[in-house]
Design a protein around this nucleic acid. Sequence first.
DNA 1: AATAAAGTTGGGAGCGCTCCCAGATGCCCG
DNA 2: CGGGCATCTGGGAGCGCTCCCAACTTTATT
Lengths: 340, 340
Amino acid sequence: MLNRSSGTPTLEEVAALAGVGRGTVSRVINNASGVRESTRRAVQRAIDELGYVPNLAARSLAGQRAGAVALVMTKTDWRLFGEPFFSEIVSAVGDALDERGVQLLLTLVRTDSERQRLLEYVRGGRVDGVLLMSVSAEDRLPDMLADAGVPTVLLGRRSGDERVTYVDADNVGGAREAVGHLVRGGRTTIAAITGPPEMYVAQCRLRGYREALREAGFAELPSLVAQGDFTEASGRRAMTGLIERHPEVDAVFAASDSMAAGALAALHTAGRRVPKDVAVVGFDDFELAEQTEPPLTTVRQPMEEIGRAMVRLLLEEMSSPKVAWHHVILRTRLMVRGSG
Amino acid sequence: MLNRSSGTPTLEEVAALAGVGRGTVSRVINNASGVRESTRRAVQRAIDELGYVPNLAARSLAGQRAGAVALVMTKTDWRLFGEPFFSEIVSAVGDALDERGVQLLLTLVRTDSERQRLLEYVRGGRVDGVLLMSVSAEDRLPDMLADAGVPTVLLGRRSGDERVTYVDADNVGGAREAVGHLVRGGRTTIAAITGPPEMYVAQCRLRGYREALREAGFAELPSLVAQGDFTEASGRRAMTGLIERHPEVDAVFAASDSMAAGALAALHTAGRRVPKDVAVVGFDDFELAEQTEPPLTTVRQPMEEIGRAMVRLLLEEMSSPKVAWHHVILRTRLMVRGSG
DNA sequence: AATAAAGTTGGGAGCGCTCCCAGATGCCCG
DNA sequence: CGGGCATCTGGGAGCGCTCCCAACTTTATT
């Protein structure tokens, strides 16, 4: 009985209308090769006429795959959602996935029970792979997923020898470029405000700062490095201390825009003019960066590319038995604005 | 052949282990009635032993429903994601849905093509219902979904006579309470900074302001009402104009926290002290509100309840043939902080 | 022109689950 | 102690699709 013209049309109905078999229609909608062009067109016409949309459930059931991947973010990420940083990645990931006909499941992991549920989800075959937004160094989730045999790609890495596939920006290079820019601008006493030392990304950015100073032939004063925790308040505090210790400071590299904004505030309070007296450079290119007074010079990560790379690696890992960890490091770009 | 002990266990394997039929296991995992307690326990034991997780795809295919709902947000919403406003709703929605075993699909609709894709998705039966975050007045998406026969619930309404099920906060009441608070604080020249007049939510908040003035027996001066567009910059501009026109202004009700923050900045520039010279009250209770100097007194919407109500209405509409539009208006709460 | 080698196509056999009905079982009452 | 009714339980019939192999066409080769 194929003539029930009610409800959503099925593949079988398309086949009947086009006068071909199910297999052929399946090949057409999956863009598989081995279909004569004329046949393909006929099938396509039938699809359009019926307004056929493949049933996802049937597809996953028969195909033994979910046709969906999870984009997991932790509580912390959630906060940052409004930032271009994340929304751009999510957009890029969404686009790239859509092109492949893979569904994106945005998943929020805040508590341990939610983490457990994710694991269950994944093991239950509801998703074929997992994309993890920034994970902290002590988070074992990536390893658990890997152990469960689930294709996984990380955004950023937890340490220098990450054993899971990841995509990261060139934090060292970005920081070096930023500080190099300060050097070329004639600054001679360049301070740094770093992130938590246990975070790999903070280590990288600090390393870039050091390398740039060395390249410039500057001595490296430990007292010129103040530690923050990536928040605005910590940036303010760090900058205040820096001014006290080194009143002669004429530039500062902050390892995040938030801290740079804090530094800006502290400099303002201390009566220093930016960029005249002190140049400030941040990192991330958050929304915030364009709204500060003056607008922040900062290092931008190629979000679009990062998102696309993550998807590419994940799909690769999904299709072929995992043979290796892939690591992709993407170049950053210095956005020169008013602050330095 | 049931003894292939490889891969994910199936319902059939659970049934075999428990010594019952498929139907019984199905009843147990779906919490259906009509299973003897002893049988239920035996099945549960088998489920635990095998670590059985139902296959979602098979379930939707057989059950003729997707078991998922989409939470749709527009480009604008995306921006606001970091705000408690949205993340709280998403959390609440996610929790409520999880309890019902329904999957949440976070969907981003930025372009027309994405809007088209959503429609296709929905029509393709990939989701059973749609939750729409703030939609603008001229957006026809809700109607299109309704026409397609898809259960839909809106957050907020597009106009006074919205013909789709929605959940909204009591914007009028919230504004009235905020302005009433200003009145009780002894303020006599209370200005308002409104949102775009074509937005229903802006109209409501303005109405609340007017009602409160009327209640207090104050005359309503049109020149005391300045228009903004919910952004910080517009709030700053509006406040500057207000100060020029009415140097005697001693309080301002801003229809959003962002605009209130802008007003704060403008007042600061003009040398007015807050709350001594001018009291400021916002609306939304965004993250921002606690960080301003001084912290912003504002109107908070019951996000948790809003999210839960949306889910409840959606599930209701999904299970029963749509017979009526449901409208739920939730009470707001005035958060009194330092600014007024 | 015959035969081999590609290139195409149809459709059977499930994927794991829900729905639903027939059959089995248990229980109460006369 | 048997009939009748309510309560449980088993399993057949799909849900719509992909995979895959056999069958059929077309084209190239000798």
